[in-house]
Design a protein around this nucleic acid. Structure first.
Length: 478
RNA sequence: GGGCCGGUAGCUCAGCAGGUAGAGCAUGUGACUUUUAAUCACAGGGUCGCGGGUUCGAGUCCCGCCCGGCUCACCA
């Protein structure tokens, strides 16, 4: 149901009036000399140009008027003078409203105050806007409207445009970096019969033609590893994952993930790689290694700290933490202000300490290594200690940005871990993946990088909704 | 899911102790041929998120609901 109001009726009347005067309300292509920012950059007094854009401001001054046009590149001022345009074309402009798309041609000049301007000789309507654009000075502030109707946000708020332009640059530079190092970009299934590669609730769907229940992927990992078996020894995938879980400032149900695998390498290979990757992208996009919101800048300058999980725990929980029995550990954790249920085991209590008291405090880039194997079923155990796996978690600004593993390539061990995880439900074991592993997957290092979180870090956004064009929202009134 | 805060004109926001709903921008009319948050004069514009209740009277107080933000929890 289209909501009507006096403004819309007025604009419909203006549209009818313009059509009566021979303008088309919704015209076709309008070839331009260049985009507005390019016309600005190549300004030559007296040059003939054709330009197009959305009318963002009109200043009537009797027999002449100034207006600003905006396109995807920027803004440009136009000047309409009655004695140059002629009475009819000038009078018709009275029926142009803020927000209309128009085309104009004329001659470049500079005003008294030095602003580059087009002296318009003729103009045409390209699309009539039936709705008032957001307010010119304050822009669009209401966050709900900004997320639900992003086009208004983009129209009104240049800093939002800039952030999404940066997002595009980040994606481009990730690809440029990896392509330059011989990694092959691949696309693997997003619709999967089993949602593996991570621990998360999947979205379920149904494929009619195959009469089969399917899932949207929660990770591409198990398919990328099949490619390692096949011989693609450096691969990456940069695309969407879907997780059927809560929404908050750092979680959207669909989010963008980079996964990279380097055969014949290990944890170290991808650890070096991810550091170089992030530094490269920061340099290209931010122009330096100081990133994050202005009020709490983060310095990415290497070397980045590397520290085992257990050391971090001992730093806050005491040097004797490893020797404590469960009951004593629970008491100590409670003494540190944590709420610990009675049935938790030692590793759960330890991880609670990590998540609540350690991770948040790691602001500058930190590789946390040697995590407990119970936390990560797909990684290789450390040769010197089977209780921990050969992984890192890269934490920046208190958030996990990128995990990296020495990948498990032993099919027998992988089967045992899957079976333990499936807890007796054989249908949850990915036999197809295990079959691939049995053909021999080369040893490999692999890592994942939460791209939305990287964009947040590099653009100083503190909500994931500010780096996703159309974030998930509840239906209103549904 | 809990707690706190918010939803008033197209947009940005005021609205006191319960007493006819306000401003700026935008819109309309008029003036103005180098303005740029143009300026000047006048005018129009409201389901105060939705539904109940209290009251002579509710934007304002109470209850329920919807949507959003922050936060805590859950979700490894």
């Amino acid at each position: 149901m289209i909501e009507d109001n006096e403004y819309r009726r007025q604009r419909l009347a203006n549209l009818a009036e313009l059509e009566k005067r021979g303008y088309r309300g919704y015209g076709g292509a309008y070839p331009r000399t260049a985009r507005l920012a390019e016309i600005h950059a190549d300004f030559v007094e007296g040059r003939e140009v054709r330009a197009a854009g959305r009318v963002m401001a009109i200043r009537h001054m009797g027999k002449s008027l100034f207006a600003h046009l905006q396109d995807g590149s920027g803004k440009f001022q136009i000047y309409l003078k009655k004695d140059i345009l002629g009475d009819e074309a000038y009078e018709s402009f009275r029926f142009v409203d803020l927000g209309d798309q128009i085309g104009a041609e004329g001659v470049l000049f500079k005003t008294r105050t030095g602003e580059p301007t087009i002296q318009v000789r003729s103009w045409t309507l390209l699309a009539k806007s039936l709705r008032i654009p957001p307010e010119k000075w304050h822009g669009l502030q209401d966050v709900e409207t900004r997320y639900r109707r992003r086009y208004l946000d983009l129209m009104a708020n240049p800093d939002v445009v800039e952030r999404f332009v940066k997002r595009a640059a980040i994606l481009r530079e990730i690809r440029a970096f990896l392509d330059g190092r011989g990694f092959l970009e691949v696309e693997t299934p997003m619709i999967q019969p089993l949602a593996g590669g991570a621990a998360a609730r999947p979205f379920e769907t149904y494929y009619n033609a195959l009469n089969a229940r399917m899932f949207l992927r929660i990770a591409p990992e198990l398919y990328l590893k099949r490619l390692l078996v096949g011989g693609f020894d450096r691969v990456y995938e940069l695309n969407r994952n879907f997780r059927n879980e809560g929404l908050d400032r750092s979680h959207n149900p669909e989010f963008t993930m980079l996964e990279v695998y380097a055969a014949y390498g290990d944890l170290r290979t991808v650890q070096v790689l991810v550091q170089e990757l992030i530094l490269h992208v920061a340099q290209c996009v931010v122009g330096g290694w100081t990133v994050g919101p202005p009020e709490r800048p983060i310095d990415l300058t290497p070397p980045w700290r590397e520290v085992p999980y257990a050391d971090l725990i001992r730093e806050v929980a005491g040097a004797d933490w490893d020797t404590l029995e469960v009951a004593a550990a629970r008491l100590r954790a409670q003494g540190m202000g944590l709420d610990i249920p009675e049935d938790w085991d030692k590793s759960a209590i330890t991880h609670e300490i990590y998540e609540k008291l350690v991770e948040k405090t790691l602001r500058t880039p930190t590789f946390v290594t040697r995590l407990p194997s119970v936390l990560i079923p797909l990684a290789r155990r450390c040769d010197d200690d089977p209780n921990v796996v050969d992984v890192f978690e890269l934490v920046i600004d208190g958030r996990e940005i990128a995990p990296g593993y020495s990948e498990l390539n032993d099919p027998l061990e992988q089967r045992r871990r899957f079976e333990a995880q499936a807890d007796g439900d054989a249908s949850k074991v990915d036999e197809d993946f295990l079959l691939a592993l049995e053909h021999g997957m080369p040893p490999a290092g692999g890592m994942g990088l939460g791209v939305d979180r990287l964009v947040m870090l590099l653009t100083g956004a503190d909500s994931i909704r500010d780096v996703i064009l159309f974030p998930q929202m509840k239906e209103k009134g549904g």
